[in-house]
Write a protein that binds this DNA or RNA. Sequence first.
DNA 1: CTATGACCATACAGGAGAGCATGGAACCGC
DNA 2: GCGGTTCCATGCTCTCCTGTATGGTCATAG
Lengths: 200, 200
Amino acid sequence: MARKADTAPDKRETGARLGRADWVAAARRALVDGGVAEVKVDRLATRLRVTRGSFYWHFKSRAELLDALLEDWRHANVEPFLSVLDGEGEPVLRLKRFFGVWLNGAAFDPALDSAMRDWARTSRPVARLVREADAARTDVLRRIFAAMGYPEPEAEVRARVAYYHQVGYYALGIVESRQLREALFPLYFKVLAGHDVPEG
Amino acid sequence: MARKADTAPDKRETGARLGRADWVAAARRALVDGGVAEVKVDRLATRLRVTRGSFYWHFKSRAELLDALLEDWRHANVEPFLSVLDGEGEPVLRLKRFFGVWLNGAAFDPALDSAMRDWARTSRPVARLVREADAARTDVLRRIFAAMGYPEPEAEVRARVAYYHQVGYYALGIVESRQLREALFPLYFKVLAGHDVPEG
DNA sequence: CTATGACCATACAGGAGAGCATGGAACCGC
DNA sequence: GCGGTTCCATGCTCTCCTGTATGGTCATAG
Protein backbone atom coordinates (compact mmCIF):
# COMPACT_ATOMS: atom_id res chain seq x y z
CA MET A 1 0.00 0.00 0.00
CA ALA A 2 0.86 3.53 -0.80
CA ARG A 3 4.06 4.41 -2.47
CA LYS A 4 1.91 7.35 -3.45
CA ALA A 5 2.37 9.10 -0.06
CA ASP A 6 -1.08 9.57 1.42
CA THR A 7 -0.44 12.93 3.04
CA ALA A 8 3.13 14.08 3.53
CA PRO A 9 6.30 12.00 3.90
CA ASP A 10 7.31 14.18 6.82
CA LYS A 11 10.80 14.91 5.57
CA ARG A 12 11.95 13.44 2.29
CA GLU A 13 10.65 15.06 -0.85
CA THR A 14 7.76 13.55 -2.71
CA GLY A 15 8.34 9.93 -3.52
CA ALA A 16 12.11 10.03 -3.16
CA ARG A 17 13.80 6.98 -1.68
CA LEU A 18 15.66 7.28 1.58
CA GLY A 19 19.33 7.16 2.44
CA ARG A 20 21.28 6.85 5.67
CA ALA A 21 21.19 10.62 6.03
CA ASP A 22 17.39 10.64 6.23
CA TRP A 23 17.42 8.10 9.02
CA VAL A 24 20.09 9.99 10.90
CA ALA A 25 18.12 13.21 10.56
CA ALA A 26 15.00 11.52 11.88
CA ALA A 27 17.00 10.03 14.73
CA ARG A 28 18.37 13.46 15.57
CA ARG A 29 14.88 14.91 15.76
CA ALA A 30 13.72 12.05 17.94
CA LEU A 31 16.75 12.49 20.19
CA VAL A 32 16.09 16.18 20.68
CA ASP A 33 12.48 15.89 21.65
CA GLY A 34 12.46 12.58 23.46
CA GLY A 35 15.94 11.50 24.48
CA VAL A 36 17.86 8.43 23.32
CA ALA A 37 15.18 6.17 24.70
CA GLU A 38 12.81 7.50 22.06
CA VAL A 39 15.17 6.81 19.17
CA LYS A 40 13.49 3.58 18.19
CA VAL A 41 13.60 1.95 14.81
CA ASP A 42 9.92 1.31 14.35
CA ARG A 43 8.91 4.80 15.44
CA LEU A 44 11.35 6.40 13.04
CA ALA A 45 10.03 4.13 10.33
CA THR A 46 6.48 5.22 11.03
CA ARG A 47 7.52 8.83 10.98
CA LEU A 48 9.35 8.35 7.69
CA ARG A 49 6.35 6.45 6.36
CA VAL A 50 8.28 3.30 5.56
CA THR A 51 8.68 0.01 7.38
CA ARG A 52 11.57 -1.28 9.41
CA GLY A 53 12.60 -3.35 6.42
CA SER A 54 14.06 -0.22 4.94
CA PHE A 55 16.04 0.58 8.03
CA TYR A 56 17.78 -2.75 8.21
CA TRP A 57 18.91 -2.33 4.65
CA HIS A 58 20.72 0.91 5.48
CA PHE A 59 21.93 -0.05 8.96
CA LYS A 60 23.15 -3.22 10.50
CA SER A 61 21.49 -2.46 13.79
CA ARG A 62 20.11 0.28 16.00
CA ALA A 63 23.55 0.67 17.54
CA GLU A 64 24.97 1.52 14.15
CA LEU A 65 22.38 4.27 13.77
CA LEU A 66 23.36 5.71 17.13
CA ASP A 67 27.00 5.67 16.11
CA ALA A 68 26.15 7.51 12.93
CA LEU A 69 24.14 10.00 14.96
CA LEU A 70 27.12 10.59 17.19
CA GLU A 71 29.47 11.18 14.30
CA ASP A 72 26.91 13.49 12.74
CA TRP A 73 26.84 15.63 15.86
CA ARG A 74 30.59 15.74 16.18
CA HIS A 75 30.95 16.81 12.59
CA ALA A 76 28.23 19.45 12.72
CA ASN A 77 28.43 20.91 16.21
CA VAL A 78 31.98 20.63 17.42
CA GLU A 79 34.46 21.16 14.65
CA PRO A 80 32.92 24.29 13.07
CA PHE A 81 32.37 25.80 16.48
CA LEU A 82 36.06 25.64 17.19
CA SER A 83 37.52 26.54 13.83
CA VAL A 84 35.41 29.65 13.53
CA LEU A 85 36.14 30.97 16.96
CA ASP A 86 39.76 30.15 17.48
CA GLY A 87 40.84 32.56 14.74
CA GLU A 88 42.67 35.87 14.72
CA GLY A 89 41.80 39.41 15.75
CA GLU A 90 41.48 41.45 18.93
CA PRO A 91 40.76 39.18 21.92
CA VAL A 92 37.77 41.25 22.97
CA LEU A 93 36.27 40.99 19.51
CA ARG A 94 36.84 37.25 19.43
CA LEU A 95 35.00 37.03 22.73
CA LYS A 96 32.13 39.04 21.34
CA ARG A 97 32.03 36.71 18.35
CA PHE A 98 31.98 33.70 20.66
CA PHE A 99 28.96 35.01 22.52
CA GLY A 100 27.36 35.87 19.20
CA VAL A 101 27.36 32.22 18.25
CA TRP A 102 25.23 31.40 21.27
CA LEU A 103 22.94 34.29 20.54
CA ASN A 104 22.14 33.85 16.86
CA GLY A 105 22.32 30.09 17.05
CA ALA A 106 23.28 29.60 13.42
CA ALA A 107 26.39 27.51 13.92
CA PHE A 108 24.93 24.93 16.25
CA ASP A 109 21.75 23.72 17.91
CA PRO A 110 21.54 24.21 21.68
CA ALA A 111 18.62 21.80 22.04
CA LEU A 112 20.67 19.09 20.39
CA ASP A 113 23.57 19.98 22.65
CA SER A 114 21.40 19.48 25.72
CA ALA A 115 20.05 16.21 24.36
CA MET A 116 23.57 14.97 23.79
CA ARG A 117 24.51 15.87 27.34
CA ASP A 118 21.47 13.99 28.54
CA TRP A 119 22.48 10.98 26.51
CA ALA A 120 26.02 11.24 27.87
CA ARG A 121 24.71 10.58 31.37
CA THR A 122 24.03 6.96 30.45
CA SER A 123 26.65 6.19 27.81
CA ARG A 124 30.39 6.14 28.37
CA PRO A 125 31.48 6.81 24.77
CA VAL A 126 28.99 9.64 24.40
CA ALA A 127 30.14 11.11 27.67
CA ARG A 128 33.71 11.01 26.45
CA LEU A 129 32.85 12.77 23.24
CA VAL A 130 30.74 15.47 24.87
CA ARG A 131 33.36 16.12 27.46
CA GLU A 132 36.01 16.50 24.81
CA ALA A 133 33.81 19.04 23.07
CA ASP A 134 33.24 20.93 26.31
CA ALA A 135 36.92 20.93 27.15
CA ALA A 136 37.83 22.19 23.70
CA ARG A 137 35.28 24.98 23.85
CA THR A 138 36.24 26.17 27.31
CA ASP A 139 39.86 26.08 26.26
CA VAL A 140 39.10 28.48 23.42
CA LEU A 141 37.47 30.80 25.92
CA ARG A 142 40.32 30.44 28.38
CA ARG A 143 42.87 31.46 25.76
CA ILE A 144 40.79 34.48 24.82
CA PHE A 145 40.57 35.67 28.42
CA ALA A 146 44.29 35.07 28.85
CA ALA A 147 44.96 37.14 25.73
CA MET A 148 42.81 39.87 27.25
CA GLY A 149 45.31 40.10 30.08
CA TYR A 150 43.71 38.08 32.86
CA PRO A 151 46.26 36.11 34.89
CA GLU A 152 46.08 32.35 34.58
CA PRO A 153 43.84 31.18 37.36
CA GLU A 154 41.32 33.93 36.68
CA ALA A 155 41.26 33.35 32.93
CA GLU A 156 40.30 29.74 33.58
CA VAL A 157 37.61 30.71 36.05
CA ARG A 158 36.14 33.32 33.73
CA ALA A 159 36.10 30.83 30.89
CA ARG A 160 34.26 28.37 33.06
CA VAL A 161 31.73 30.87 34.29
CA ALA A 162 31.01 32.04 30.76
CA TYR A 163 30.69 28.57 29.29
CA TYR A 164 28.93 26.84 32.16
CA HIS A 165 26.54 29.72 32.31
CA GLN A 166 25.48 29.13 28.73
CA VAL A 167 25.15 25.39 29.25
CA GLY A 168 22.99 26.06 32.29
CA TYR A 169 20.89 28.54 30.39
CA TYR A 170 19.96 25.93 27.82
CA ALA A 171 19.68 23.17 30.40
CA LEU A 172 16.94 25.15 32.11
CA GLY A 173 14.96 25.14 28.91
CA ILE A 174 14.42 28.86 29.05
CA VAL A 175 12.45 30.48 26.29
CA GLU A 176 13.04 34.17 25.82
CA SER A 177 12.51 36.53 22.96
CA ARG A 178 15.54 37.37 20.92
CA GLN A 179 14.82 41.01 21.72
CA LEU A 180 15.15 40.45 25.45
CA ARG A 181 18.34 38.48 25.01
CA GLU A 182 19.86 41.19 22.85
CA ALA A 183 18.83 43.83 25.33
CA LEU A 184 20.56 41.98 28.15
CA PHE A 185 23.62 41.19 26.04
CA PRO A 186 25.70 44.27 27.04
CA LEU A 187 25.16 43.52 30.71
CA TYR A 188 26.05 39.88 30.28
CA PHE A 189 29.17 40.90 28.44
CA LYS A 190 30.16 43.34 31.15
CA VAL A 191 29.65 40.82 33.92
CA LEU A 192 31.33 37.93 32.16
CA ALA A 193 34.18 39.79 30.48
CA GLY A 194 34.76 42.62 32.91
CA HIS A 195 34.73 44.96 29.92
CA ASP A 196 32.14 46.96 28.04
CA VAL A 197 31.03 45.64 24.68
CA PRO A 198 33.57 46.71 22.03
CA GLU A 199 32.64 48.39 18.77
CA GLY A 200 32.45 46.40 15.54
CA MET B 1 13.24 -18.87 47.86
CA ALA B 2 14.71 -16.35 50.12
CA ARG B 3 12.83 -14.22 52.50
CA LYS B 4 16.07 -14.73 54.34
CA ALA B 5 17.92 -12.16 52.22
CA ASP B 6 20.77 -14.05 50.56
CA THR B 7 23.26 -11.19 50.70
CA ALA B 8 21.96 -7.71 51.42
CA PRO B 9 18.50 -6.23 50.77
CA ASP B 10 20.20 -3.20 49.23
CA LYS B 11 18.40 -0.62 51.27
CA ARG B 12 15.76 -1.68 53.70
CA GLU B 13 16.95 -3.08 56.99
CA THR B 14 17.11 -6.80 57.60
CA GLY B 15 13.88 -8.51 56.82
CA ALA B 16 11.69 -5.43 57.14
CA ARG B 17 8.72 -5.08 54.81
CA LEU B 18 8.63 -2.28 52.34
CA GLY B 19 6.53 0.85 52.11
CA ARG B 20 5.95 3.47 49.46
CA ALA B 21 8.96 5.40 50.73
CA ASP B 22 11.29 2.50 49.95
CA TRP B 23 10.05 2.32 46.37
CA VAL B 24 10.36 6.06 45.95
CA ALA B 25 13.91 5.95 47.30
CA ALA B 26 14.82 3.19 44.88
CA ALA B 27 13.21 5.11 42.05
CA ARG B 28 15.21 8.19 42.99
CA ARG B 29 18.44 6.23 42.86
CA ALA B 30 17.51 4.77 39.50
CA LEU B 31 16.59 8.20 38.21
CA VAL B 32 19.93 9.67 39.24
CA ASP B 33 22.11 7.07 37.63
CA GLY B 34 20.04 6.14 34.62
CA GLY B 35 17.39 8.74 33.85
CA VAL B 36 13.61 8.27 33.90
CA ALA B 37 13.87 5.62 31.23
CA GLU B 38 15.62 3.38 33.74
CA VAL B 39 12.96 3.76 36.40
CA LYS B 40 11.30 0.46 35.60
CA VAL B 41 9.14 -1.52 37.94
CA ASP B 42 10.75 -4.90 37.52
CA ARG B 43 14.28 -3.53 37.84
CA LEU B 44 13.42 -1.73 41.04
CA ALA B 45 11.82 -4.93 42.29
CA THR B 46 14.98 -6.89 41.55
CA ARG B 47 17.07 -4.29 43.31
CA LEU B 48 14.78 -4.37 46.33
CA ARG B 49 14.81 -8.16 46.24
CA VAL B 50 11.08 -8.52 45.90
CA THR B 51 8.80 -9.12 42.92
CA ARG B 52 6.57 -6.74 41.02
CA GLY B 53 3.64 -8.09 42.96
CA SER B 54 4.76 -5.97 45.87
CA PHE B 55 4.95 -2.84 43.80
CA TYR B 56 1.39 -3.04 42.55
CA TRP B 57 0.14 -3.29 46.06
CA HIS B 58 1.74 0.04 47.02
CA PHE B 59 1.15 1.81 43.72
CA LYS B 60 -1.63 1.79 41.22
CA SER B 61 0.76 2.15 38.31
CA ARG B 62 4.23 3.24 37.30
CA ALA B 63 2.86 6.72 36.66
CA GLU B 64 1.81 6.97 40.29
CA LEU B 65 5.35 6.14 41.36
CA LEU B 66 6.70 8.90 39.15
CA ASP B 67 4.24 11.34 40.65
CA ALA B 68 5.37 10.35 44.12
CA LEU B 69 8.97 10.77 43.05
CA LEU B 70 8.20 14.26 41.84
CA GLU B 71 6.53 15.27 45.06
CA ASP B 72 9.41 13.78 47.01
CA TRP B 73 11.88 15.95 45.13
CA ARG B 74 9.82 19.09 45.57
CA HIS B 75 9.50 18.49 49.26
CA ALA B 76 13.18 17.67 49.82
CA ASN B 77 15.06 19.88 47.40
CA VAL B 78 13.08 23.01 46.81
CA GLU B 79 11.43 24.21 49.96
CA PRO B 80 14.42 23.82 52.34
CA PHE B 81 16.74 25.34 49.80
CA LEU B 82 14.75 28.52 49.80
CA SER B 83 13.90 28.84 53.46
CA VAL B 84 17.52 28.49 54.51
CA LEU B 85 18.89 30.98 52.06
CA ASP B 86 16.32 33.69 52.04
CA GLY B 87 17.07 34.64 55.63
CA GLU B 88 18.58 37.66 57.29
CA GLY B 89 22.07 39.11 57.55
CA GLU B 90 24.55 41.02 55.44
CA PRO B 91 23.80 40.52 51.74
CA VAL B 92 27.39 39.55 50.98
CA LEU B 93 27.34 36.94 53.71
CA ARG B 94 24.03 35.56 52.44
CA LEU B 95 25.63 35.26 49.03
CA LYS B 96 28.59 33.42 50.47
CA ARG B 97 26.19 31.08 52.23
CA PHE B 98 24.34 30.49 48.98
CA PHE B 99 27.50 29.43 47.21
CA GLY B 100 28.44 27.35 50.20
CA VAL B 101 25.37 25.21 49.69
CA TRP B 102 26.58 24.27 46.23
CA LEU B 103 30.02 23.53 47.57
CA ASN B 104 29.35 21.33 50.56
CA GLY B 105 26.21 19.86 49.04
CA ALA B 106 24.57 19.02 52.33
CA ALA B 107 21.22 20.64 51.76
CA PHE B 108 20.46 19.10 48.40
CA ASP B 109 21.73 16.70 45.78
CA PRO B 110 23.05 18.26 42.56
CA ALA B 111 23.05 14.94 40.72
CA LEU B 112 19.36 14.55 41.46
CA ASP B 113 18.84 18.10 40.33
CA SER B 114 20.46 17.35 36.99
CA ALA B 115 18.47 14.16 36.59
CA MET B 116 15.28 16.10 37.20
CA ARG B 117 16.26 18.63 34.58
CA ASP B 118 16.88 15.85 32.09
CA TRP B 119 13.52 14.39 32.89
CA ALA B 120 11.96 17.81 32.42
CA ARG B 121 13.14 17.82 28.83
CA THR B 122 10.54 15.20 27.96
CA SER B 123 7.75 15.85 30.43
CA ARG B 124 5.60 18.96 30.61
CA PRO B 125 4.56 18.73 34.28
CA VAL B 126 8.12 18.00 35.38
CA ALA B 127 9.36 20.92 33.32
CA ARG B 128 6.85 23.18 35.00
CA LEU B 129 7.93 22.09 38.47
CA VAL B 130 11.65 22.37 37.77
CA ARG B 131 11.21 25.75 36.22
CA GLU B 132 9.30 27.00 39.22
CA ALA B 133 12.16 25.83 41.42
CA ASP B 134 14.73 27.52 39.20
CA ALA B 135 12.76 30.74 39.12
CA ALA B 136 12.43 30.76 42.90
CA ARG B 137 16.13 30.14 43.41
CA THR B 138 17.29 32.77 40.95
CA ASP B 139 14.92 35.20 42.57
CA VAL B 140 16.63 34.67 45.91
CA LEU B 141 19.94 35.43 44.24
CA ARG B 142 18.54 38.45 42.45
CA ARG B 143 17.30 39.95 45.69
CA ILE B 144 20.68 39.40 47.30
CA PHE B 145 22.52 41.16 44.49
CA ALA B 146 19.98 43.97 44.61
CA ALA B 147 20.57 44.31 48.34
CA MET B 148 24.29 44.48 47.61
CA GLY B 149 23.62 47.62 45.66
CA TYR B 150 23.52 46.46 42.05
CA PRO B 151 20.92 48.33 39.99
CA GLU B 152 18.00 46.26 38.79
CA PRO B 153 18.95 44.98 35.38
CA GLU B 154 22.44 44.06 36.54
CA ALA B 155 21.23 42.31 39.68
CA GLU B 156 19.08 40.07 37.52
CA VAL B 157 21.93 39.33 35.13
CA ARG B 158 24.37 38.55 37.92
CA ALA B 159 21.83 36.24 39.53
CA ARG B 160 21.41 34.42 36.26
CA VAL B 161 25.11 34.08 35.60
CA ALA B 162 25.72 32.75 39.08
CA TYR B 163 22.85 30.26 39.02
CA TYR B 164 23.12 29.12 35.43
CA HIS B 165 26.82 28.67 35.93
CA GLN B 166 26.23 26.18 38.70
CA VAL B 167 23.58 24.33 36.73
CA GLY B 168 25.96 24.08 33.81
CA TYR B 169 28.75 22.88 36.04
CA TYR B 170 26.72 19.91 37.16
CA ALA B 171 25.19 19.35 33.74
CA LEU B 172 28.67 18.80 32.34
CA GLY B 173 29.21 16.00 34.82
CA ILE B 174 32.47 17.45 36.00
CA VAL B 175 34.32 15.63 38.72
CA GLU B 176 36.78 17.71 40.70
CA SER B 177 38.34 17.32 44.07
CA ARG B 178 36.84 19.33 46.85
CA GLN B 179 40.28 20.82 47.37
CA LEU B 180 40.42 22.24 43.87
CA ARG B 181 36.93 23.64 44.16
CA GLU B 182 37.73 25.31 47.46
CA ALA B 183 40.93 26.72 46.02
CA LEU B 184 39.05 28.27 43.12
CA PHE B 185 36.23 29.51 45.34
CA PRO B 186 37.65 33.00 46.02
CA LEU B 187 38.13 33.61 42.32
CA TYR B 188 34.64 32.39 41.51
CA PHE B 189 33.27 34.65 44.19
CA LYS B 190 35.17 37.64 42.87
CA VAL B 191 34.05 37.09 39.29
CA LEU B 192 30.44 36.34 40.13
CA ALA B 193 29.91 38.84 42.92
CA GLY B 194 32.30 41.60 41.93
CA HIS B 195 33.57 41.57 45.52
CA ASP B 196 36.24 39.76 47.47
CA VAL B 197 35.14 36.98 49.77
CA PRO B 198 33.97 38.50 53.08
CA GLU B 199 35.12 37.32 56.47
CA GLY B 200 32.95 34.99 58.56
C1' DC C 1 13.91 -4.83 -23.10
C1' DT C 2 16.15 -7.16 -19.66
C1' DA C 3 19.19 -7.77 -15.84
C1' DT C 4 21.27 -6.03 -11.80
C1' DG C 5 21.36 -3.61 -7.76
C1' DA C 6 19.05 -0.38 -4.61
C1' DC C 7 15.17 0.06 -1.85
C1' DC C 8 11.17 -1.50 0.66
C1' DA C 9 7.08 -4.68 2.52
C1' DT C 10 5.71 -8.69 4.97
C1' DA C 11 6.02 -12.18 8.14
C1' DC C 12 8.17 -14.42 11.71
C1' DA C 13 10.79 -15.26 16.39
C1' DG C 14 12.07 -13.49 20.68
C1' DG C 15 12.78 -10.45 24.69
C1' DA C 16 11.55 -6.81 27.82
C1' DG C 17 8.34 -4.62 30.44
C1' DA C 18 3.51 -3.09 32.17
C1' DG C 19 -0.54 -4.48 34.45
C1' DC C 20 -3.95 -7.70 36.61
C1' DA C 21 -5.62 -11.71 39.36
C1' DT C 22 -5.18 -14.75 42.89
C1' DG C 23 -3.24 -17.35 46.60
C1' DG C 24 -0.09 -17.50 50.34
C1' DA C 25 2.78 -15.78 54.12
C1' DA C 26 3.70 -12.50 57.78
C1' DC C 27 2.15 -9.45 61.31
C1' DC C 28 -0.90 -7.11 64.73
C1' DG C 29 -4.86 -6.28 67.72
C1' DC C 30 -7.59 -8.51 70.74
C1' DG D 1 -4.31 -18.28 68.96
C1' DC D 2 -7.61 -16.22 65.76
C1' DG D 3 -9.18 -13.10 62.28
C1' DG D 4 -8.23 -9.37 59.60
C1' DT D 5 -4.99 -6.48 57.43
C1' DT D 6 -0.73 -5.85 55.20
C1' DC D 7 2.59 -7.31 52.27
C1' DC D 8 4.51 -10.33 48.72
C1' DA D 9 4.98 -14.43 45.09
C1' DT D 10 3.43 -16.62 40.95
C1' DG D 11 1.49 -16.89 36.74
C1' DC D 12 -0.76 -15.19 33.26
C1' DT D 13 -1.93 -11.46 29.05
C1' DC D 14 -0.71 -7.74 26.11
C1' DT D 15 2.01 -4.33 23.98
C1' DC D 16 6.14 -2.51 22.17
C1' DC D 17 10.47 -3.13 20.19
C1' DT D 18 14.51 -5.51 18.05
C1' DG D 19 16.43 -8.43 14.60
C1' DT D 20 16.21 -11.79 10.52
C1' DA D 21 14.65 -13.82 6.33
C1' DT D 22 12.67 -13.49 2.08
C1' DG D 23 10.30 -11.88 -1.71
C1' DG D 24 8.55 -7.87 -4.28
C1' DT D 25 9.16 -3.26 -6.81
C1' DC D 26 11.50 0.51 -8.92
C1' DA D 27 15.29 2.72 -11.54
C1' DT D 28 18.70 2.47 -14.74
C1' DA D 29 22.69 0.77 -17.44
C1' DG D 30 23.66 -1.78 -21.47
